[in-house]
Design a binder for these strands. Structure first.
Lengths: 155, 155
DNA sequence: ACCTTTTGGTTGACGCATCAACCAAGCTAC
DNA sequence: GTAGCTTGGTTGATGCGTCAACCAAAAGGT
């Protein structure tokens, strides 16, 4: 016989389906909102947020990639597009010949400053307000557990 | 003064960050796995699953779109790609001149039959096994609440 | 009958994510 | 010093999701 059953139990499947549905609806709606309100993609938002949070709005390419847990290719494409839109600039790194810094431009700072409160409002409206603080804590705990569990798993 | 505070409380932000992180890691990993194991995208998987679950592997285009909560454009592109890969076919509908059916081809049936158990294993391994059934139930309840709350919200 | 709206579906352009291949600079060890 | 690995980063192809515009058939109203 199989080491693991072939299918999920009905209760397990119900939980999975509920979670997936919520997640898709929430993320979808949120990213359409951020796009509509600010002409930025969620990726733009994330990158600018991390960049400006961290002191002087200037970070090593790979540090940034690790911070948001992206692979370098994704970051490279993303930064490329953002450069084209004037949100960030690249500077090369004096101590490492191959390295690069990513720097938020004034336009980038402006964009994130304008977008952040609106984004937070949507997060609150769609997600935070749906649950009590206790429930939010519970959800955070469960999320952390899932992440910890995944990190132990191969791939 | 503002009706709503400009930022989230630290506890709210912590919950949001945990959830987002988990969600991204989980969905990302899962969709890379399904792609690697079965040469299908998660979208392919979903469409074929719904199509073959529902009786004879044949469904009206819009019914299918509503079932998975996609807009028609997305479904149209998706079905187009799947036709090209031989997973489904389109047939026109006799009673409605503009309508179309989407039908799973034999190759489509085969593909989903092969992919489903592997997919379920990954869901179990990465998600279900991380939590107890009680916790899964809790998560499902909270997810449903968030969805219900979103459905009351504009946009 | 005619006109309008709704429904069913396609299309094209664009931005984003992934994969694989690649290149150059630095590091290690011999 | 030089061979080989690792790290930092780019590039191009391909598939996916969104938006907006569009078309045709079907309903509904008068």
């Amino acid at each position: 016989m199989d080491a693991t059953p072939r299918w999920l139990t009905p209760e397990q499947k119900a939980a999975w389906d509920s979670f997936i549905r919520m997640q898709e609806k929430l993320i979808g709606r949120l990213s359409r909102r951020v796009q509509a309100d600010s002409r930025m993609s969620p990726a733009d938002y994330l990158v600018l947020a991390k960049l400006t949070e961290s002191g002087d709005g200037r970070m090593r390419f790979m540090d940034l990639a690790k911070l948001v847990e992206w692979e370098k290719s994704r970051m490279s494409h993303q930064v490329g597009r953002m450069v084209k839109r004037g949100l960030v600039a690249k500077e090369d790194c004096p101590d490492d010949g191959r390295g690069a810094f990513v720097v938020a431009t004034p336009a980038g700072h402006e964009a994130i400053a304008e977008a952040a409160p609106v984004h937070v409002d949507h997060v609150r409206r769609l997600f935070v307000d749906a649950l009590t603080q206790d429930e939010l804590d519970t959800l955070a705990r469960l999320s952390d557990r899932v992440v910890a569990h995944m990190e132990k798993q191969p791939d």
